[in-house]
Design a protein around this nucleic acid. Structure first.
Lengths: 200, 200
DNA sequence: AATGAGAAAACTTATTTAGTTTACAAAGTT
DNA sequence: AACTTTGTAAACTAAATAAGTTTTCTCATT
């Protein structure tokens, strides 16, 4: 039987709720009702398990994003749904998880293999393209540069929220930051949509 | 200078956000900008610090309770405010904190000295008394027994939320449990008030 | 019967962290 | 100016904790 997926999913939940260091391999095994040995059969060590967990989280997020993106009437709606999701996500993520990521696993994110990526950082160019087509973003913006900028905003938000430097940046700050940047590249129609959604 | 209070308050915040074990004495000292030595000047060991923190939390809670109680138009309003407060409190409390409490400091709560008590468990009899006076709770209930029952409900809620046995009892469940018990001891007027507040 | 997959638990070893000790610096006091 | 106090900084020790390993046992499948 292939335990890999089961292990990853339970580990993901536990890491996110308790933090990484707080979850011992014995604990995880206990929760899964399997032996520790079996975990080590599938993952070389805890770091490899963590990588698996992060990769899976990223994939799941990407899926959700795609779903939101396809189910939304316009880009602005999609973005607000996205921000909501991110907010929930961050709220349910233990600060301990974030701290542990920062303390012990920063290297992973600087990893030259680039196996692990920042969540929420992909598919920005899609969003811009669609926004322009819908007449929500200005036609005269440089898609390439704007893409890079949005990536930076997202990355920075991640740095500050997933790895808070201790002066925690609340999700509201992130939200406002992101929204104001969006306003800057929007047409009149876009601005109206943003205002409409922002009220709720 | 007396650092005691400063230390307790910072420790309280850190314990609640990261969990107890995750917060090392070095970390705490670093956050406070003081030396670890100074902490040990005031507290014999980490356990004593934790006791100080819990005691302080309890006192702060008791104060807030008193304030809510005195500022409310009727008992039902007070209880709803109380439940709200408890909800927020639990939401901002790291599961790691709860886990650590359970794993390492259960003894404290069984402590014969009784220095540390369950939070939220006092002043129930006051509530009942006032409720009867206001015609919200039935006159025919046995104040003593009801008091014991409400204490049990509160204690159980604490057991399950502050020390979740892993099948986590959500604050909604606790809320519903508590409210339904209240309904059982309420007059018609009380029921109406409960329904009124519950809608929001 | 033989193989293999995993449980259970004891074990080793590395790391972490509580708690101590030392050396030192600034500030106030005599 | 010497002395005392109060605290910092950092190195240290010793205990505990948790990662990872090994062994033994069991049960299911071929």
């Amino acid at each position: 039987m292939d335990y890999r997926q089961t292990i990853v999913e339970e580990a993901a939940v536990m890491f996110r709720t308790y933090g990484i260091r707080a979850v011992t391999m014995d604990m995880l095994a206990g929760h899964l009702g399997i032996s520790k040995r079996t975990i080590y059969e599938v993952f070389r060590d805890k770091d490899e398990l963590l990588q698996g967990v992060l990769k899976w989280m990223k994939e799941k997020q990407a899926e959700t994003m795609k779903k939101i993106f396809s189910e939304s009437a316009n880009v602005i709606e999609a973005i607000f749904k996205m921000l909501d999701m991110m907010g929930n996500h961050l709220q349910n993520m233990s600060p301990a998880f974030q701290m542990d990521m920062k303390r012990y696993h920063n290297e992973m994110f600087r990893n030259p293999d680039g196996q692990v990526e920042f969540p929420y950082s992909s598919s920005n160019s899609e969003i811009i393209g669609r926004g322009i087509k819908e007449g929500i973003f200005r036609k005269d913006i440089d898609v390439d540069i704007t893409n890079k900028c949005l990536l930076e905003v997202a990355k920075m938000s991640n740095d500050k929220t997933v790895f808070p430097p201790d002066d925690y940046m609340s999700k509201d700050v992130v939200r406002t930051f992101y929204l104001n940047y969006l306003r800057g590249i929007s047409t009149q129609k876009g601005l109206e949509l943003i205002n409409l959604h922002d009220k709720k």
